[in-house]
Each structure stands twice: as C-alpha cells, then as structure tokens.
Design a protein around this nucleic acid. Structure first.
Length: 485
RNA sequence: GGCCCCAUGGUCAAGCGGUCUAAGACAUCGCCCUUUCACGGCGGUAACUCGGGUUCGAGUCCCGAUGGGGUCACCA
C-alpha cells in the first residue's frame, strides 16, 4: 500500500483561523494514524498579501499544539521547496504542456475587457462565464502575439457538455454539470500560477495521497480533476471538511474576535482543551468518550466518522471543557499560568498566591475571568446590606450584627493566623453560642469580602486577607451594620 | 439567480429498515452535598423540518417543498 501523505497548505495571513487549525489537525491525525507523512506547505502565490512574520504564526501554532510536520519549509524534505513562491518557475512549463495537449490555451483578453463583459452579463442577470474567446485563435496568431510580447494568461479548456462525477470520502458521489465550469486561469499575467493550479501541481509533485480541505472547494474540484486527467496523474482521495460555524448562519469571524487561535489563547483557554474540543466539532469517535490527548486522538481518529453537516462551535461546551482541563492540570502549572492574571489586580498586595491558586483552580473556567474573581482581595468592594440576607443560612442584617459581635473577639484572640486556627476557634465559639454555622459564617464572609460568592469560605478568605486586613474590614462592616440598624 | 452540499432536542451528536415509546455530552431546570460559589451526585424539560412515495415495517431508502450553507476572480 502506498504511504499516506497529507498536507496542510495555509496561506500566510498572520492568523490561524480555528477552521484552518481543525483542518490541520485532521490532516495530521490521519497521517499519523496511518504511519504516513504530514506535510506543511506555504501558499503565498499572492504577493500582494504578504504579511511579515506570518509563517512564524503558522509554525508556532502548529508546534505549540503538538502537530509536528514531517516535511516543510523550515525542515526541508525530499519534495521541496515547500513555499510556493520559491517554486514559481516550476509551474509555467506544466501549463505549457497542457497547451500543447490542447487542454489549455493562451488568452489575451485584458482584465478590463473581462470586467466589462462580466458587468454586462450581471446587468442582464446572467451568470458570467468566460466565453472561450481566445480558444480558437490560430497557432500562428497566438505565436505572433506571444512574440510581440502581448500580455497573456493561460486558461484551462473546460468541456461544455456532459457532467463530471467524483467521489468524496465524506460527501460520497458528487456530480456537476460541465456547462457550469468556467475556463479558469492557470497562469496569471504576472507569470505566477493561480492558487488552484499551483495546488494541483504541488499536490501531485509532493505525492499527496489525501487532500483534506474545507468544503468551499467542493464545486471547484471537478476542475482540479480535469487538470489531473489532462496530465495523466492519479487523482488523490478527497476529504472535504464542513465549515466551523459561529451560529447557524455565520462562520466564526474575525470581527467577533472568536475566529483565531490566538484570540482564545489570549483569553486564557488551554491549547489542549481547544484542540480537544475542535476535534469534536465535525467528528466523533463513535462512543461516549470526549477527552483525548493528541496521542489518543491519533489512535481513535477515523476519517469515515467525519460529519457531513456543518457544526456550530459551542462556546459553552468549550468553556466547560476548558474548566475540566484546568481542574485536572498540575497545581504548579496552574500557579504559573494564574500568576499573571492574579497580578493584574493583586500585584504588590502580599497575598499567598499558592493558596489562592489552590482555591481558584477548581473554579476557573477561563483565565481571563480570574481577575474579576479575586479583585475583592485587593480592595473591599462597596456592597449592599441586602447581602447579609440569606434565607437558607438563616441570616439577615440583624443576625449578622450579632454574629459579627460574637466572632470579633474570637478572631482578635487568635495568635497564629492560620486557616485551621481560624476554623477551630470560630467553630468552637459558634458551637457554644448555639447558633447555626451558616448564620455566623455567611455574615463573616460577606463582612470581609463584600461578595455574594468568593473562591473560598470565610476562613480561606480571612487567611488570604491576613489578620490586619481582616480585622479592619470586619470593623468597618460592623460600623456599617450599626449605622443602618 | 445558476450549480452544489446539508437537514435528529438551544448546541455537539449516536443512529447506517424492525432492538427508537431515539443514547451520551454541553446548556437549562429541580433536588442532594455544603460556611458562599464552584465541583460532585441524582432527577426533570427538550429532537427525528414538512409533504408524498417504496416497504409487512422508515429517523434510517427515493422524490418534492421549505430552511440553512457553499460556490460562481488574473484571492487563496
């Protein structure tokens, strides 16, 4: 059996779209699953779009996610170069070969002429298709123009009758009427190949066996096949992937800040969670498992379980999955990742980050939500007296006042300000007072945090705050209670 | 608009003619646990787009309608 060779062929835009990342992932998984090769090729035939540092973004993202390529621009390989602009001289001869075979032809129509004809067509509400105007030019006439240096493009000569059928792994048999096929340009006026042409030539030259790409290429694939056939090359297996959507009618988009890998990383999503979730949009293992490491994905990945209907990228589920990954991560790693987020609001506050991290790890959904959750430690927030009212805890401002009066001297008597000392002393006082735990602990926590919910109970918060700050906050809250009594 | 693709709960989805009075997960709701929140546990609400066929039998096959998406560049 032939070695499986897949490829990821992004154009360097400076950003990695999640849809693209998923395409890369599936290509990677399939290659690894079959002991094949995963190739990275940069498609930069459009010189006007060149973006500085864009290839690095691609490298960093793929490597960061654990998708190492076997051949690529930076590491080479037997089929290089792997950057299309470095291969630009390779394409014209292939196009000329097609012209000789009669499968393609020179076209001297100018852009302006074409635009005019296109506009006229649209005005009549018709679909514009190149009319093969230059197809029947005599050989001599063509040569004459070529010799005279008249600018030209080379076009594919598509059939106008019949239909083309091909097989796609996820969509099955696909049939297109030939009269909808446009004579696409193969070589542009500047001598560079078009994306479509370079793609076919490169895929063949690089021995790509499985072409996995977005389904937006579904309807141009018949033209690709025309090319393969004209050259007498083997047609690769096609695996068209559905679109990753934001909702039923929109793709993930740049505008909403939810399209790029970097957007998510900056918000504090873990790349492992992102990859894991992304793998599940449009594919499933056939059983109930949802958590996978890269190696596990390689193990279970099956190209035949790819879905053929578009999937919506569910932020809710991503959040949930991210929460799970964070909860399971190494505590030291959490501390390391969480520290910059703590620093945003707690820098210079002398808070025990290690303890804070322990308390926060199980409550963190996405790191960018961390600062808002811990900010109260830096400064006591303004709060409403209503916070003291909690039916289940059997407390209200009245009860709170009493409870705090009970607890204050106890706290003052604690020598060594540790959580367990705090706990033991206060619990003992509560027990001997005959009060309910909640009726004391809820008010205490409110009094020193000003928050309905905090990343820990009264003792944890008191510990984090330290003795001095805790007592200061407590006294202030007691005054507030007294004033409003 | 032409052509192409798609169609199970709010979302991801299992299902590949009978075992579907349709699995699981997220979200949502309720209860339990608990010094808050969260975690966790238990339970609930919630779907085969519609209409024709084919068949003894259809979520599963066919046709049509509807809805959604894609594509129609000397962009990739």
């Amino acid at each position: 059996m032939k070695e499986v060779r897949t490829r990821f062929a992004p154009s360097p835009t400076g950003f990695m779209h999640l849809g693209g990342l998923r395409t890369a992932l599936y290509n990677y998984l399939y290659a690894k699953k079959n002991g094949g090769k995963f190739i990275l090729r940069i498609e930069d035939t459009d010189q006007e779009r060149f973006v500085e540092g864009a290839t690095e973004v691609i490298y960093d993202t793929l490597r960061g996610c654990g998708m190492d390529w076997d051949e690529g621009p930076d590491i080479g390989g037997d089929y290089g170069p792997y950057v299309q602009s470095d291969r630009k001289d390779m394409y014209l001869p292939y196009a000329q070969q097609l012209v000789e075979k009669g499968a393609a032809y020179y076209c001297f129509c100018t852009k302006e002429e074409l635009d005019e004809r296109r506009a006229a067509c649209e005005a009549k509400g018709e679909v514009f298709k190149y009319d093969k105007h230059c197809l029947n030019m005599s050989k001599e006439e063509v040569q004459q123009k070529l010799d005279a240096g008249v600018p030209y493009v080379i076009r594919l000569n598509c059939p106008t009758e019949g239909e083309t059928t091909y097989e796609d792994v996820v969509f099955g048999k696909l049939t297109f009427p030939n009269d909808t096929l446009d004579d696409m340009v193969l070589i542009k006026q500047d001598g560079m190949p078009t994306y479509n042409f370079a793609n076919v030539v490169d895929d063949h030259l690089m021995g790509i066996t499985h072409v996995m790409r977005g389904m937006e290429y579904l309807s141009s694939t018949p033209k690709y096949n025309l090319l393969y056939n004209a050259f007498g090359w083997d047609i690769p297996e096609y695996v068209h992937l559905t679109t990753v959507m934001r909702d039923a009618q929109h793709k993930l988009s740049k505008r909403d800040g939810d399209a790029y890998y970097s957007d998510f990383i900056e918000k504090g999503y873990l790349k492992e969670a992102l990859i894991n979730y992304l793998a599940l949009v449009g594919w499933n293992p056939g059983d109930d498992r949802e958590f996978f490491t890269m190696d596990e994905l390689i193990d279970v990945f099956d190209i035949h379980r790819l879905n053929n209907s578009p999937g919506i990228f569910d932020m809710n589920k991503l959040d949930w999955m991210n929460t799970q990954y964070i909860a399971k991560m190494d505590p030291e790693k959490y501390l390391e990742m969480g520290t910059p987020w703590f620093d945003k609001v707690l820098a210079g506050k002398n808070i025990d980050y290690k303890r804070l991290a322990e308390l926060m790890q199980g409550r963190t959904e996405v790191f960018n939500r961390v600062p808002a959750m811990v900010e109260f430690l830096a400064e006591m927030p303004e709060y409403e007296l209503e916070l003291y009212t909690h039916k289940k805890m059997k407390t209200n401002p009245e009860v709170a006042k009493e409870s705090l009066e009970l607890v204050k001297p106890v706290l003052e008597g604690i020598q060594d300000w540790t959580e367990s000392n705090l706990h033991d002393a206060v619990m003992e006082a509560i027990a001997s007072s005959g009060k309910k735990n909640g009726a004391v602990l809820w008010p205490l926590r409110i009094a020193i945090s000003g928050m309905a919910s905090t990343p820990g109970g009264a003792f944890e918060i008191a510990y984090l705050l330290g003795r001095e700050e805790t007592m200061a906050r407590l006294e202030k809250s007691m005054e507030k209670l007294a004033e409003n009594a």
